[in-house]
């Protein structure tokens, strides 16, 4: 039980680390919030389940914490994103994506013309 709890704790910590890494690597606000919300939510769930396995008597309080985190974390991230969107920040990778599309289309055209 102790060992299983520690392993799940470690998995949760790994997901939180991945979330932090994603915060550094992602290009704009929206993608960063996505990574932050999802990875950290699963990470926190892992930590809570791990603690529940190590201290089985605490399960009810941990269950309440889990419920509140699952209900509030997406709402808060959604509110932050909405604030960014309303203040006029465009997802800038859109322009890049269009370029990529054009490039792809051009490549395909070239292939078609060459073949």
């Amino acid at each position: 039980m102790q060992l299983a709890g520690e392993i799940i704790l470690l998995i949760g910590a790994i997901f939180i680390f991945l979330g932090a890494l994603g915060l550094l690597r992602m290009p704009d606000v929206y993608n960063r919030i996505q990574v932050g919300t999802k990875a950290v939510t699963l990470g926190v769930i892992g930590v809570i389940v791990g603690v529940a396995l190590i201290h089985p008597l605490w399960w009810s309080k941990l269950f309440v914490i889990l419920g509140f985190i699952l209900l509030t974390s997406p709402v808060s991230s959604s509110a932050i994103t909405k604030a960014f969107y309303r203040s006029g920040i465009k997802p800038w990778t859109k322009a890049r994506k269009m370029k990529g599309k054009k490039k792809k289309a051009q490549k395909e055209e070239n292939k078609e013309t060459s073949s």
Binding site: L18, R25, M26, P27, D28, V35, K38, A39, T41, K94
Partner: peptide
């Protein structure tokens, strides 16, 4: 949720970030 996190982990750890947001 678990599927989403593995998907995201793959995207974060890949070198050329396959995202089209």
């Amino acid at each position: 949720l678990i599927k989403a996190n593995f998907d995201l982990a793959k995207r974060v750890l890949s070198l050329d970030m396959k995202i089209h947001p």
